[in-house]
Amino acid sequence: MCDCEKALDWISLDLDGALTPQERRELEDHLAVCPGCAALARELAALHRVLPELEEEVPEGFQQAVMERVRAEKVQALPAGRGRAVPWRRWLSLAAVCAVVLAGAGSLGRFWDRSGGTEPAAGETLPVQAAQAGAAAQAGAAPQEEAAPQKEAAGEGQGPELRLYTAMADPSGAREAADSGEVLPEASPLPTVGAAMNQAAAQNEDLTEAQRAALTANCAAWLQTSGLDPAEAGLLTVEAVTQTDLEAAVCPGEDQRARLDLDDYRVTLGSSDVLLCDSATLEVLGYLPTV
């Protein structure tokens, strides 16, 4: 038997189609003789009809906004939080290149002596920064819980020099990824510098001699032709271009200016020269005038 006490619950269940036929009959019997409950039932039914109409369309650009933030998430713990987040794969490949450039330049010795497992101070040169970013990017990449190496992991296919950096940068010290003793393969001739760089950035594969040389050559050549002091071309710091950089940049032509954006790199050479390089081809697009 339905009564006023049970009526609210039963009316609500009835709206959701959750009453048994028997219960339904009992409810109807009660509503037939109880005007108060009958009004309640009518009114709740009206609300039940209209409430779904409050559903709105999602604001424009919502999904885009979400995915932008998702992409920004992939880059973790960039030192000093400078500039905009850079896709971590590019960081990794660039880190590999620059680290090996440094190795080639003979500054490797410094890093061998460093005790591992401690965070380098902000403002350290690239290899530790980038390797750290690389290691942190992997550690921080949200969806991955396992420490197991993946195809894009820093360890695979990298030369011994970078393995050392990632081992030091990784506080836990145990970089399972860095277990292969392989040597970087010999270079095969590549048609253009741009294509080679693209390949490296896109696939994060082993960097050939030609590619490593190209980056150093790009910067050095640019400095020379522009009349700036080549300086100690060995020390490169690479960060993401900032909005301020974009506004202050000096570019040789409109094409370069148009291609320069927040996805590109600001490369600091020596102590003061800052070149702005295309993230895809690694060629120099412009520079920042020294104040």
Binding site: L8, D16, L44
Partner: peptide
């Protein structure tokens, strides 16, 4: 859940 929904509907009304 069922009783909360019932009370919620009543409150809205």
């Amino acid at each position: 859940v069922k009783s909360r929904i019932a009370r919620a509907r009543a409150a809205l009304r």
